[in-house]
Design a protein around this nucleic acid. Structure first.
Lengths: 347, 347
DNA sequence: TTGAAAGCGGTACCAC
DNA sequence: GTGGTACCGCTTTCAA
């Protein structure tokens, strides 16, 4: 392994000078700097990040912790963040928490807070106070944090506005009896700011119903775990229940896909018999049959907001500003799953 | 930040003793060890990985580099490896190479080889010689490496046997005119061991045709980039070509999904008009409509083989054994996309 | 403008 | 069995 001493020796300067030169410190005269750079290149020198990190606390790497690597939304988000960080000259390391408290603690405490300049984190099972401890003082940006009293910068997904747009769309295309899948009607009791993602999406639904003067009952909302298996089962139960819905808003695309699959199992066709809207905008929605109308979270925007917040914290020296809370953009992408043939005929 | 000196002081021992005690060195007497552990717990001490790594070259973290985070197969593989590593008490950090040479170099040179005890890597644009340089001497296991003369341990996906099983299945259900999508017929000229994944999958197809005494022509094979967009376009062209296939083997599930989508665009129904088999076994194949028959690579097996090979290298001291080449298990998962109604009637 | 040297937080050798 | 201490590779004061 070639070290900076090797480079310094080859260039005929001291280690200190080599260090300054390689990092472009203006104190070093151009000739010396060029000599050092040349030596580094010739020797294929690469700085040792552990050493740099140990000494200066910085190494140009940021950490991202997501629930699960193998689910579409978090992994697409990870890709977006990774690419955005690259644009700023940073490397991103991704880890999965497996949505368990031990996982989150292990990652933050053992890895991310030690090996990275800062981290972006989807908290699931640790609260802000624990996070503060686990962060080891390193900058952190949270994704969809639900603390009433935020300690860290946060970027939220556009839950309220997005869900509202979804229901608006179903109403627009003529749906008269809409079902929202993903949250209990009862979950909406708490303070909205500090509440869960599902409750915030539910809130958006209610807002839309309200603005359209549509009365809803608890039966218009069904809770389900956010995975396709459960959604599929739920669709079976809905199909057998006899209750007739003509439009469904699923709080995630994965739910939507499972739900549509479940409807298909029971001979109910989307969009002919029922229109379906998803949320997230994962790539698969375009290739699913039918392609799925979805509230597409703008992941580039989310990534850019998160990385910029993090960089601000990493670069700020001492003076700590108020934690910020931003929301990512979205757009409603209309596809087959809400194309109503009856509507098309009237056009 | 609480350091080992703090722990040592609190426990009334030296730093050296504290270090030994915390790592369970048998030389330390149980009482002393307990004292140290208690102090560490009370102070919420966590070892600094950069420091440990700098000194000992080990920190319990392995690196995984995959092409793209936001594609199903690599991310499911990443999840499997991450979980397998956890089982061995290791943390995994995942990075995406974006399938570019610069990406691969940056990751290996700047991050993985420095911050990790070893790495698992899908090479795409760097050859073995470059890899050896970039690895910095750290242990590395490759995934689907195609070097004629392997330098590193490798775990391959079951290309030949899997593709053969796929074609076998299509033949079994009565397909008479089969199309394989994903590789040129011409790509099969080179030495099989050192050839690309697509060529190896192609070879499996040919083996099956051969064993069933089925004559094939170049028209039975169509090349396409391995993404759903291209596959969808290709399906459009196939549909319009007039050539009648009754069974299609797509070399990845993503191709299969895009292809089925494209067929649907043209009014061709799967499996009624055409049976389709995919490869990889990604989760979505189960929820796609129709659900997709696929050659499912056993990712737990792949992960276990890769992690075990890596651990062996990390733990081996000096004595270097021959590079090993293993192949992951698979199973053919039969689903709707190859359910032939005509066959079902005759049963 | 450059160099000497201290030190980041651990590990591991060697002496006691 | 435990402690002193050199050292991993780099950054960063401080002096020259």
């Amino acid at each position: 392994m070639v070290t900076m001493s090797d480079v310094a020796k080859a260039a005929g300067v001291s280690r200190a000078t080599a260090s300054y030169a390689l990092r472009g410190d203006p104190r070093i005269v151009p000739q010396t700097a060029a000599k050092v750079r040349e030596a580094a290149r010739a020797l294929h020198y690469t700085a040792n990040l552990s050493a740099r990190s140990l000494r200066s606390g910085r190494n140009g790497v940021i950490g991202l912790a997501i629930f699960e690597l193998d689910r579409a939304y978090p992994s697409e988000m990870g890709a977006a963040i990774s690419r955005e960080a690259n644009r700023h000259g940073l490397q991103t390391i991704v880890q999965e928490t497996s949505n368990s408290k031990e996982g989150e603690i292990a990652i933050l405490q053992k890895v991310t807070s030690q090996l990275c300049d800062g981290m972006i984190f989807s908290p699931g099972n640790v609260n802000d106070e624990e996070l503060r401890q686990l962060s080891g003082g390193k900058p952190m940006v949270l994704l969809d944090d639900i603390s009433p009293d935020p300690v860290f910068d946060t970027v939220n997904t556009p839950c309220e506005a997005g869900s509202q747009a979804a229901i608006d769309h179903l109403i627009e295309i003529g749906c008269k009896n809409i079902l929202a899948v993903g949250a209990h009607y009862e979950s909406l009791t708490e303070d909205l700011q500090s509440t869960s993602v599902s409750a915030r999406r539910l809130y958006g639904c209610l807002k839309s119903f309200d603005e359209h003067d549509i009365e809803v009952e608890p039966e218009n909302f069904l809770h389900v775990l956010w995975n396709p298996e459960e959604a599929r089962d739920l669709a079976h139960r809905v199909a057998k229940s006899g209750r007739r819905y003509d439009g469904v808003f699923c709080m995630t695309d994965t739910i939507a896909m499972g739900f549509i699959r479940g409807l298909a199992d029971c001979g109910i066709s989307v969009p002919k018999d029922m229109a379906v809207v998803g949320f997230d905008g994962i790539n698969e929605t375009e290739y699913f049959i039918p392609s799925i109308t979805t509230v597409s979270t703008d992941l580039s925007d989310l990534a850019s907001k998160a990385v910029n917040l993090l960089l601000r914290r990493i670069e700020e020296d001492g003076e700590i500003s108020e934690p910020q809370r931003l929301t990512a953009d979205f757009k409603l992408v209309k596809r087959s799953s809400t194309e109503r043939s009856d509507l098309r005929i009237t056009l």
